[in-house]
Structures are given as C-alpha cells and as structure tokens.
C-alpha cells in the first residue's frame, strides 16, 4: 500500500471498519471520514454505543439469542407460546423472522450448520441444549427454519433424527414461490419443490 495520508489512529480505524461485512477499504475510508466530520453527533455516540454493547451483550443460555440480559427478552416474555420452538442457524435469521412478526413462539439459535469440511460438528452447535429443551416437555412442535443448502438440509435431517425419539413433532418451513413472484422467473428446482408441497386451496 502507498504511504498513508492519515496518521496511525485513523489508519487503524479504517482497517477495523474495513473488516465489517459489506465494507471494503474504499467504503471504510469514506465511513471513517464521515465519522470524523461528524465527531460529536456520530463518532462519539457510536463509540459509546459500541462500548456499552460490548460490555452488556450476552448470549442467552436458553436459546442462544443475543441480548443484554440472560434469559433474553424473547425467552423471558410471558406473551409467547411455550409449546413452539423455531430453530434457526443464526441470530440474523431470528431477527428476520421477528421482522415478519408472523411467529409468536420461542426460538432456538444453533450458531451455524453442520459441516464436516469446515469442521463444524454437532457439539459445536447449540444442539444438545435444544434436545434438552425438547426433553423437558411442554413442547408440541419444533419448526426448522434452516437454509436450503446442503449444510442446512443435513442439519435439519440430523435434528429431526435426534428429536424423533422424544415424540416431538418436527416441521420445516415451506419452500417454493416467493410472495409477488412470477412463476416464469423461478428456477426449476424451486418450482418442483413448490409443486411437491402444494396444498388444498
């Protein structure tokens, strides 16, 4: 890299920002400049928010969600249905489902998907805890909301296999035509899956 125009403090800030998802070196420089320009209204509050979050964020010991308290707000909420658990790979997936506000049960965050090649084993995932929750009783249905990838499907299969012995009903979210989607634009695999999981209208 060429000689930097800025001092080491700024360079360090840029280097750290460039590690964020969606930011490259160029956009990190722009972000850093914007922070510096708006030091009082943006940079200082951001630094405080980050320090605060770094200090307080915990992983929920029940479901694997992240929150400032343990158990997390979802696990602690009395308004949520206790008998439903929705299993997701990442916290981001949980947030996506919450944005849809179509689900009123509890969650379970695995922290990834099984992958022998990437060295992700069942013990690396939050699976034992899920089985324990199911074994404790009061669960009528476990909903699997995992990625439609080989790893996601393998993980779904694995969990189903482990839960079957407990007599818990395991379901999987549907795959098929997206809302507002035109059939003409769908790939063949999605169309075939949609047709396979058709239901009475």
């Amino acid at each position: 890299m060429a000689d930097s125009a800025a001092g080491p403090e700024i360079e360090r800030l840029i280097a750290l920002l460039a590690k964020l998802p969606g930011l490259g070196p160029r956009s990190a420089r722009r972000a850093a400049l914007q922070l510096i320009r708006k030091r009082d209204v943006l940079m200082v509050p951001l630094a405080e928010a980050m320090a605060d979050a770094a200090d307080k964020i915990k992983i929920c010991s029940n479901c694997g969600n992240i929150d400032a308290r343990d158990p997390c707000a979802i696990c602690a909420s009395p308004k949520r249905e206790d008998s439903l658990i929705c299993v997701v790979e990442q916290v981001g997936d949980l947030w996506a489902l919450e944005r849809a506000s179509a689900y009123k049960g509890r969650y379970h965050v695995l922290g990834g998907a099984l992958s022998a090649l990437d060295g992700v084993r069942p013990e690396d995932l939050n699976i034992a805890r899920l089985i324990k929750r199911a074994r404790n009783g009061g669960i009528s249905e476990v909903i699997l909301a995992l990625s439609m990838t080989v790893d996601g499907a393998t993980t779904a299969h694995y969990i189903t296999d482990r839960l079957q012995a407990l007599g818990v009903s395991v379901t999987s979210i549907a795959r098929g035509v997206p809302m507002g989607g035109e059939l003409d634009y769908l790939d063949d695999g999605t169309l075939a899956a949609a047709l396979k999981s058709r239901r009475p209208f």
Binding site: L114, A116, R121, P122, V150, A153, T154, T155, A156, H157, Y158, D161, R162
Partner: peptide
C-alpha cells in the same frame, strides 16, 4: 476419514 461414525449425521448426508 475422521472416524466420526455418528449415525444421525452420516444418515443425514447419505439422504442428501
């Protein structure tokens, strides 16, 4: 290869 004979995991992959 890693000697992980986990029937659930192997079964899941074999199903794929």
């Amino acid at each position: 290869d890693d000697n992980v004979f986990d029937p659930s995991w192997l079964g899941a992959l074999e199903a794929r």
